[in-house]
């Protein structure tokens, strides 16, 4: 399995990673090697096997519907890159 430079660009876009153009070929090669290694999985016989999402055979525990958090906006926003009037700022969102 090998990834083309275009596929790498497409994946990088999906993952919102800016790649410099000189990195793309390099990544394409490395990622192809990784996918080759991962390709060994196709040898396994898994027709009757159910997928395992989790090591624990447990079910979800439920939380009581109670308010357990207080307002900590100041602490949380003290580590934010840009805030104004209690809002997080980002470049204008256009829909």
């Amino acid at each position: 399995m090998s990834l083309s430079a275009d596929q790498v660009r497409q994946v990088a876009h999906l993952a919102r990673l800016e790649l410099k153009s000189e990195q793309v070929e390099h990544y394409a090669r490395q990622l192809s090697n990784i996918l080759d290694m991962v390709g060994q999985l196709s040898q396994a016989q898994t027709a009757e096997v159910s997928p395992m999402a989790h090591p624990l055979d447990m079910v979800q525990r439920l939380r009581p519907d109670a308010i357990a958090e207080e307002n900590r906006r100041e602490a949380f926003q003290s580590i934010a890159p840009a805030v104004q009037d209690g809002l997080y700022l980002v470049p204008k969102v256009i829909e």
Partner: peptide, 15 residues
């Protein structure tokens, strides 16, 4: 929610 008015070239995010 994203608020688009009142922040110039930016949007404000209320979570």
């Amino acid at each position: 929610k994203s608020l688009h008015e009142g922040f110039g070239q930016q949007s404000g995010i209320d979570l």
